[in-house]
Design a protein around this nucleic acid. Structure first.
Lengths: 260, 260
DNA sequence: GGCTAGATCTCGCTT
DNA sequence: AAGCGAGGTCTAGCC
């Protein structure tokens, strides 16, 4: 399928600049129908109601509607969208009479709504001015390959258990306890039960609490005076987390997800 | 400053469709210089190296470069970008000889790099085909107004402490302990110290661990046999969290951030 | 659908 | 710069 020359992309775009409201509505509706990725840039207000509720007065923003139902409203700042809707929403576009101070005007505004249920949530973007509408179609067959995750750290220990400590033997991953699944369950050189909690980066008090719950649960499960060791594995810990570890008789081993 | 008619937006856009590599490079560089919000859609590969590392083979994606240094790479699926760079990065755009199988070709590809330090991180997007380049300029003076947050829940209780329980008296918010700041610190009708942990939504085991740490820390701080009550306030709790509450002698009060 | 925990979490705040 | 916790977190996996 692939040749020496780059595969010519089948990607397409339809772009409108400064469109009239109705032309914008049509282009957006068409893009949604064609399952394109639709973007709209212009001056708009944004209202959200659902798990919480929010309002945002007029400003120039970039709106992205994805064919899977996701919606994103971006300002010129921040990595995160100022408003959004998760995948699974239904996008709708329409024209409304301008609901401004002068209701008698013949002007109309472009309205984009993204709605979902469970939970009921609605995002409404009203454009006073549309600067650009684009509808992108393309293909993306490839998934991202990521390394340096907690899963990599787990693999590293399973392949070389001595990294944790000499004589450590992993017996299970995701072993279930009354408090939830343990990252690595095993035993030490002396045959004592070991619970290992993995974190890909420096950890704070939360991770200690997690490990503590697993150790407590296992000590009950395994009956009586069973001694269960809890080991937190991470690149490093904060001071407060370290104090908590000591207070609760838990241990720490410094390891990173990947070697170097 | 604002009149009866909608303020004409000063927002502008420069759009190129199917640009030659060098024209794309120039438009993007110019947009970055002008502190515009720049978007590029086309077939690209993406490489990331930093806190973790990732690679992504060719596909059609939407790239957004923000003037604050943020970079986002979106596919047609998901609310989250497949790759990104946080605000504070430096964006750079250039043309490279096509690094494909046939190195002798005169073709060149468009390369966008976003780099930051602390931690050292680099994102590199290589476009085989550029379908559209846009550079948006606009203004956004307004901040979002959000309600239904934990802060709203706090205000609700401070204004009507009896919502927690009859006779409750708040004494401080964000009261510092050895384990961190407590959401609400107060005392009950009998004069006993009360620690309140707030959550805007249904909570699991984590929140119980948090409350537990605060109560433990205060019992040590306040000396000896001081009895400290810990109350978790949230709309609801999971079964496992409820069991943990009971096990550790903690209490639960059901409250939502806003009244209906 | 709910529960649990991870994430290159991001973001804001405080030290 | 680091620590800490909130978030409309989102997302994946499992039950």
């Amino acid at each position: 399928m692939s040749s020496g020359t780059p595969t010519p992309s089948s990607a397409r775009v339809v772009t409108l600049e400064q469109p009239a409201v109705d032309a914008a509505r049509e282009a957006i509706a068409d893009g949604i129908d064609r399952e394109a990725l639709v973007t709209v840039f212009g001056r708009c207000t944004v209202d959200y109601e659902g798990r919480a509720s929010s309002t945002l007065e007029a400003g120039d923003r970039h709106v992205m509607l994805k064919p899977d139902g996701a919606a994103l409203v971006h300002t010129d700042e921040g990595q995160q969208p100022v408003n959004w809707q998760p995948p699974g929403c239904t996008h709708a576009v329409s024209c409304d009479p301008a609901g401004d101070e002068d209701g008698a005007e013949g002007e109309s505004v472009l309205v984009i709504e993204s709605v979902r249920s469970t939970p009921d949530e609605r995002l409404c973007v009203r454009f006073q001015n549309v600067v650009q509408v684009s509808a992108f179609s393309g293909t993306d067959e490839n998934d991202i390959a990521l390394s340096g995750t907690e899963e990599d750290l787990r693999q590293r220990i399973l392949e070389e258990p001595a990294l944790l400590e000499t004589g450590f033997t992993p017996l299970a991953t995701e072993r279930e306890t009354a408090a939830g699944a343990v990252d690595i369950y095993g035993e030490d050189a002396a045959g004592r039960t070991v619970v290992v909690e993995l974190k890909r980066r420096r950890v704070g008090p939360d991770a200690v609490g997690q490990l503590r719950r697993y150790v407590d649960a296992l000590e009950r499960d395994l009956h009586a005076d069973a001694e269960v060791r809890g080991i937190l594995v991470a690149p490093s810990v904060t001071d407060r987390a370290d104090r908590l570890l000591v207070d609760h008789g838990l241990e720490f081993v410094s390891l990173e997800p990947t070697s170097e």
